[in-house]
Design a protein around this nucleic acid. Structure first.
Lengths: 250, 250
DNA sequence: CGAGACGTTGAAGGTCTTCAAAAGCGGTGG
DNA sequence: CCACCGCTTTTGAAGACCTTCAACGTCTCG
């Protein structure tokens, strides 16, 4: 690995593993130096709340490690998770800092963040960064709409399978940095049944029952308490009734 | 009303009723002149298909009149409408011209459009326009996520009421140009029961039954075949179990 | 070990869907 | 003008699926 620090001025961002995929992907060195200035690395423990609905998110940035959920909650306690942020994903809403969501760290999370205002100033100055952000937000929009189909029209079984497909593609993207485009052999589930239920618009018992049923059918193979193997990915895709778009969006 | 055409050079866009709310809102005169050049007004009859999934949308622009739906369809015919575009809304996805949606005109529609490529070039040149677009797309994202809660967690009754609230706010925004901020007295439903069902993730019969039930309860008052009055808007809000955000997003 | 959180499983119940039929509305043509 | 046809909408009855309620099992950690 090349020693990039010899120049003495290259910001640590240049070494970031999300340098090529994250929001900073297209930023030039000038922008990187700017970003570097206000950078703050935040840590959240598993299960901790990052923000409540109505809170002002003073920072925006990239999830480095862990898993963050965005949820909408109703008075009576029903909740619907509307977004999952994996490493490399952008957290925050430019232009409106008050969040309508309950933002939670589902696992030990590291968040590389910048001051909200500083970031927006930079945005106005750096068209490349702005374009990149727009792209990322549009992908989120596509993902949200894709998930709407799952919530509105799929059976519990299909929902679960869609979830596995989503995870497989998503975890794959993370590890794709390396070389192989193959899907991960074992999926490590950091989410509890309840968190999965909230994401899929189901009750916890239904999720549990579908897990059992799918395992019995051999579509999934439990590995320990939180591991999962998909012996026949095609079969899962089929059971999810997904048009295979190669995970492009979701 | 001032006669704006005296200057002889002012583009028709300057007179557009969506000049202040649409995508062109913040564009300066220079951008307007640019936009004006490639402008094409398209018409679609009620029920016509604008694009099939996988099609390339060569144009982007603003819906002027009518109602456009974006839907995801499954092999077996199930469909989920993931977005409704009312007058003033932006149709198209910058950066990716292939649409994953079935795009349909639910009623007689006029679409003020620009060439896809030309628009993107203009975007790169006009930071104000770009910002405006980002804003609009982020609003769409918020709306999609809001709808996820409705699809995943609400009962049929709540879904219908949420739909009425959505419509009331949405139609209000259109007529708000004038003066009064009050909600519209009569909602004109251009959508069939089937289209409503596809939007709410329900079957047509369920929608019909809920209509009957809500009418019987006095929450809604049918006016003719496609008209609707909400005698007590607060009650509908309550039945929708919506936190009243003043229709900010949805 | 015991407490508490998480997960599984069973039985009963409710909500939405499915299947089926009839009614309402709108247009066409005799 | 009215009979007729097609389409949308409504309504009913039966059934499927998911939820609810409840109990038990399992894992983790002090």
């Amino acid at each position: 690995m090349r020693n990039l620090s010899v120049a003495g001025v290259l910001p640590a961002c240049a070494l970031c593993q999300f340098r090529s995929t994250g929001i900073c992907a297209l930023s030039g060195e000038r922008e990187l130096v700017q970003l570097e200035k206000g950078k703050i690395l935040k840590r959240y423990s598993a299960g901790s709340t990052i923000a409540y609905p109505g809170d002002t998110l003073k920072h925006v940035g990239t999830v480095m490690v862990g898993l963050v959920s965005l949820s909408r909650v109703m008075q009576d306690g029903r909740r619907q998770t509307v977004g999952l942020l994996h490493p490399g994903d952008f957290l925050g809403r430019p232009g409106r800092s008050v969040t309508p969501f309950l933002v939670e760290a589902l696992s030990e999370t590291e968040f590389c963040s910048f001051d909200h205002k500083a970031f927006e100033h930079l945005l106005a100055d750096a068209p490349e960064l702005h374009s990149r952000l727009t792209d990322v937000m549009l992908d989120e929009l596509d993902a949200a709409r894709k998930w709407m189909k799952i919530l509105g029209r799929k059976s519990a079984r299909e929902k679960l399978c869609s979830f596995f497909v989503y995870l497989a593609y998503r975890l794959n993207r993370q590890s794709m940095r390396a070389s192989d485009r193959s899907l991960p052999d074992i999926i490590h589930l950091t989410m509890t049944r309840e968190q999965i239920a909230d994401f899929l618009g189901l009750r916890i018992e239904t999720v549990s029952r579908q897990f059992s049923r799918l395992a019995q059918e051999g579509l999934i193979e439990p590995v320990g308490r939180h591991g999962l193997r998909l012996p026949d990915f095609r079969a899962v895709l089929e059971a999810a009734d997904e048009d295979d778009d190669g995970g492009m969006i979701c």
